[in-house]
């Protein structure tokens, strides 16, 4: 099998794709936002329970490919318990990782960079330009939800 495919579909990604964590509606949420990728029809709903600028709880539901499910699942794991500022600060480094497969050089690193944790496992998506949006959908939805958007987010 193609090495780039192995890099993309690592065991951890397949595991999160099959059994997404934090899956399902979140009772008592403070933010709820829909994200859609109109190109493929993938759709997810992100729930956040923000208390005193801290993400006390987070979940999502929806249907999509292994990449979009795993990306959302890993995101929710990463963000539970973080501050809203920390979560927002992660967007750029994650976006860069998914687009280029690279983290910012250490010399220029910003606070978010070292906080990616297992989200780094999605770096392989950068070799598949037609799949990048599958991975960014959850993060676009997150940023819009925390910015107070109420209209569904689209990757287009």
């Amino acid at each position: 099998m193609d090495p780039e495919l192995r890099e993309l579909y690592q065991d951890l990604i397949l595991d999160h794709g099959r059994q997404p964590r934090n899956f399902g509606p979140l009772p008592g949420y403070s933010h709820r936002l829909e994200g859609v990728n109109p190109l493929c029809g993938d759709k997810l709903v992100l729930y956040l329970k923000v208390v005193d600028d801290r993400i006390e709880d987070i979940s999502f539901e929806g249907a999509g490919c292994a990449i979009s499910m795993a990306s959302a699942s890993l995101m929710t794991e990463r963000l539970r318990g973080r501050s809203v500022d920390e979560a927002m600060a992660l967007f750029d480094p994650v976006h860069r990782l998914l687009m280029t497969g690279e983290l910012r050089p250490a010399a220029n690193s910003e606070p978010g960079d070292e906080n990616l944790g297992k989200v780094r496992m999605l770096a392989g998506v950068s070799a598949f330009p037609s799949r990048v949006k599958c991975a960014t959908l959850a993060w676009h939805t997150l940023r819009a939800a925390l910015s107070g958007e109420s209209k569904p987010v689209s990757t287009e």
Binding site: E4, L5, L8, D42, C65, A66, I67, R131, C134
Partner: peptide
């Protein structure tokens, strides 16, 4: 069963 069309077509493309 259990596979999403996009994942299938990405692998087929390769």
């Amino acid at each position: 069963d259990g596979l999403h069309p996009h994942d299938i077509s990405t692998v087929l493309d390769r």
